[in-house]
């Protein structure tokens, strides 16, 4: 039973918690850079979640090699891995953009604090 709990934690609740930590950051943080970091944490949580969904018990990497020459039903699921690859790249792209945006906001308004930007925002 303990084993079951552990697997649930590591495959589902753990990644989700990381995701929600990011969300918590967005709920409470006022600094634009911290918000960008929160978004990144969310993305990490999501990526971890996706990868963990591809886990197959005692599986090999989905690559044919000299050692694994033919199809065995013990390969890990390649699809989530491919999805994660795409998701990572997209999150990198968004991060690059959002950081550049933060720099511009800082140079224009002189602050990255949302409470101070609040009046200008509306």
């Amino acid at each position: 039973m303990g084993h079951e709990w552990l697997s649930l934690w590591s495959f589902l609740y753990g990644p989700l918690s990381i995701f929600l930590v990011g969300l918590y950051g967005l709920l409470t943080q006022k600094n634009l850079i911290k918000m960008a970091i929160s978004i990144n944490i969310m993305d990490y949580g999501v990526n971890l979640f996706i990868i963990s969904l591809g886990y197959v018990p005692s599986a090999e990497a989905p690559i044919y090699t000299d050692a694994v020459k033919t199809y065995l039903p013990v390969f890990a699921d390649p699809l989530p891995q491919a999805l994660v690859l795409t998701a990572i790249v997209i999150s990198v792209a968004v991060t690059a953009f959002i950081l550049a945006l933060t720099i511009k906001i800082h140079s224009q308004y002189g602050t990255t604090d949302l409470t101070k930007l609040g009046e200008m925002e509306l």
């Binding site: 967005l26 006022k30 918000m35």
Partner: peptide, 13 residues
């Protein structure tokens, strides 16, 4: 519609 970003996330959550 006149929230800070945090406010919108609150709303969504």
């Amino acid at each position: 519609f006149k929230q800070s970003i945090n406010g919108f996330i609150w709303l969504a959550v």
